[in-house]
């Protein structure tokens, strides 16, 4: 009888599988990616390597010495400290490669109203820290719709089949969001930031991503030395508008490789693909699916690719308290299979 191995589901809970069951899950995850996104499957030796990583009984695993990659973050800091103290903790105690200063109301629209305070915090961060510190927030297009914003709410218009009104509302929101993102990014750049991060881009669909791409394009033209990171919200861009294009490429429906081409074209320096987890499936299934979806990026990218491997993305379980056995397996698998530039 095949021995059982301790592993985890993507909600973080422990479970047991045999090596054969785990291999079947790895293959099923890849099959799901191939079927949905029409990507190439992972090679047989790559699946063998993943099986060795995930079927190991060790509590922790890591890449080989010399194969380390750059780590970029969103939302660095700690609830136990003030904001700058939290960044120092990450720099001095966690040995982070770079950091993000952020506001709890993680939205460019919200930050715009208190941007002088964020500039002060960035200036202090730059004076107290040596490693790169960027500013990050979300495009968060939904905030521009009623009742939180000035635009008609396309989420209520669409079910009523008022398609043209919904599209017009999103176009109106896009213009406002792009202006806010550019305003905040330039303000933080003036305060000494090493760059900006547009996090969970596309969360509200194709209009959300297009607003971000336009902001990136504007910032790149005005500030050639600005670091610009775009981290995605999901593996596929929802077509909440459906007809939007960026330089003649339809934004809706793009998978990671297509998203990456758009982000590069806009002028970003780091692209962060995101693949959401299915909490009802195993760690192995989710990771192999994520790796198959993102693999085309690594091959074609001209700028660094930092895969999102935070809570609930990239195979990492959806749980506020994450086990190191799960995180380290995803970390190692991602680096060794995809040969990415960072996480």
């Amino acid at each position: 009888m095949e021995p059982h191995i301790l592993t985890r589901m993507a909600d973080g809970s422990l479970t047991e599988m045999t090596r054969s069951e785990m291999r079947a899950d790895l293959e099923a995850g890849v099959d799901e990616a191939v079927r949905r996104a029409k990507v190439d499957p992972l090679a047989g030796d790559e699946l063998d390597h993943l099986l060795d990583i995930f079927a190991s009984s060790s509590r922790f695993t890591a890449v080989d010495i010399g194969d380390e990659v750059m780590l970029s973050f969103d939302g660095t800091g700690a609830a136990q400290f003030d904001r700058i103290g939290g960044l120092l903790l990450y720099e001095q105690c966690l040995a982070s490669d770079s950091l993000e200063l952020f506001h709890q109301d993680y939205s460019y629209k919200a930050v715009k109203t208190l941007v002088p305070h964020e500039q002060m915090a960035m200036k202090e961060a730059q004076e107290r820290l040596t490693i790169p510190v960027h500013y990050g927030s979300q495009p968060d297009l939904g905030r521009y719709s009623e009742p939180d914003g000035p635009c008609p709410n396309w989420s209520t218009l669409l079910p009523e089949l008022r398609i043209e009104e919904a599209r017009a509302a999103q176009e109106q929101a896009m213009d406002l969001a792009t202006a806010d993102m550019v305003h905040v990014a330039e303000a933080l750049w003036e305060a000494g930031a090493d760059g900006v991060n547009f996090d969970t881009a596309g969360a509200a669909g194709d209009a959300d991503l297009l607003a971000t791409l336009r902001a990136v394009e504007t910032l790149r033209a005005r500030h050639p030395d600005m670091g610009i990171m775009v981290g995605m919200a999901a593996e596929r861009v929802l077509g909440t508008h459906g007809e939007l294009e960026f330089h003649s490429t339809r934004v809706a429906g793009q998978w990671p490789a297509g998203q990456q081409r758009l982000v590069e074209q806009a002028g970003a320096t780091i692209f962060g693909p995101a693949v959401n987890v299915n909490t009802g499936r195993s760690l192995a299934w989710n990771t192999s699916r994520a790796l198959a979806l993102v693999k085309p990026c690594a091959a074609q990218a001209r700028v660094p690719v930092h895969m999102n491997v935070g809570m609930g993305v990239g195979g990492v379980p959806m749980n506020t308290v994450l086990a190191v056995d799960a995180v380290s397996r995803v970390s190692r698998a991602t680096v060794e299979i995809l040969r990415l530039d960072g996480l």
């Binding site: 890591a62 990450y90 966690l94 040995a95 982070s96 770079s98 994450l322 190191v324 190692r332 680096v335």
Partner: peptide, 20 residues
């Protein structure tokens, strides 16, 4: 999570040359 990623795959920031 940042500890796990950092130990498993990170360049070590100012402890090494990850920041550069």
């Amino acid at each position: 999570m940042p500890v796990a990623h950092g130990v498993a795959a990170g360049m070590g920031g100012m402890r090494a040359a990850g920041d550069l």
